[in-house]
Nucleic acid binder design. Sequence first.
DNA 1: AGTAAACGTTACATTTTTATGACACCCTAT
DNA 2: ATAGGGTGTCATAAAAATGTAACGTTTACT
Lengths: 236, 236
Amino acid sequence: MTVTILVVEDEPAIQELIALNLKREGYMTLSALSADNAMQLINNVLPDLVLLDWMLPDTPGIEFARRLRREERTKAIPLIMLTARIDENDKIAGLEAGADDYITKPFSPRELIARIKAVLRRRLPEMSDEVLELGGLRLDPVSHRVHACNDGFSDLAEINLGPTEFRLLHFLMAYKERVHTREQLLDRIWGDHVFIEDRTVDVHIRRLRKILESVGKENLVQTVRGTGYRFSVTPN
Amino acid sequence: MTVTILVVEDEPAIQELIALNLKREGYMTLSALSADNAMQLINNVLPDLVLLDWMLPDTPGIEFARRLRREERTKAIPLIMLTARIDENDKIAGLEAGADDYITKPFSPRELIARIKAVLRRRLPEMSDEVLELGGLRLDPVSHRVHACNDGFSDLAEINLGPTEFRLLHFLMAYKERVHTREQLLDRIWGDHVFIEDRTVDVHIRRLRKILESVGKENLVQTVRGTGYRFSVTPN
DNA sequence: AGTAAACGTTACATTTTTATGACACCCTAT
DNA sequence: ATAGGGTGTCATAAAAATGTAACGTTTACT
């Protein structure tokens, strides 16, 4: 899945450098040179993660972070702060303002990438490109493939899913053993504020189940009556 | 593919020594005794990698590194810094400026070569001159040739590819079993920020497939609907 | 048991995404 | 100049995926 990262950094050179390194890793990037700039951008495209320079010209980084956290639409976005100071107070203030992690400048590209991956793994598991193995299924986001390890070891049947079914399964597996309402699924799999019927989720669940049944994997996608759906390893 | 390495080093003796070692490994070398000198050279020939001395007479190495990173044409070039100091701060500053690696003097030719290869492998696997053998194909970047080893050993049919198809296949094979979006392919095969339609990728994929089919190699280049393309040995 | 709400299933029209062939342009070597 | 291969773009065909509505089943509760 393509992760979009917003970089809020006023120094063009560093901005470029960061963007370059992110692209090399396969992330999409959005660039903002100021907090205001960033806010405008966010109105159009909702990024999956924000890299925020602590020291910005107009608004201090922390102020921007607070604003992000205040609004419903943006308050769940993972946030990593970039700071030149090693001041313990700043670190605390940053984390208090809702930062998921922080990096002190100067930092190496490798460290940057490592921290981003760590935050994604924690906050947005469905975007972290990790292979998921659960309930006899093996989903690899990188090669975009799903296999069924039929109760043991021998045959690994390949499972062919359509784009939406793939994302759906990916999401459900990433957040296993949790119920998701149809609305939540629409929001997070289809995207922000799509105008789609709730019942459509049922249909895609059906399609997913059908394919899973065809390789003998039943009861993995479970209905929670009155609420929604859940991926679970225990039968029901 | 011949890798061209630019060596920016003011001391002629070391310059010579490095160039000699690189040549022995089969790299092409460009020499610059100063940053200005290097900039001029780069205007004519774009190197695939830059070896940069930290202490230069006119411009400090780090300044040159920043300049490299700032310009569109040069910002993706892998960069290795040579430094005499063992100061950790320098190391960090260098990495921040976009260096991929650094070597502290004095260093052995072997270490130098090893680091260059490591950086190339990481940054430009499709340039690392390694022969790739996958799915009954044998691609040799050095001789710029592709052969089809038809399911065994006997006949090695030579495959004739156009430049773009060759690079495309090379890239796909270098990153096998991974899905690539059309954008990623454009970025890494055509070059950063080229103004080319996404759909053009389809056409080149088509041309590549056509040629592969003609030697009985089908299903190696696979479509991942909704995402992009993938080179894979397993049928699909 | 009866009933309404929630969920499952199917069919289908539409939209979206890819595949493919044709074509014009641009180099390069003759 | 000119032939020829290589490229990018476009139009159109073909395939696949998607959202909805309609109808069948199950479930919870009276």
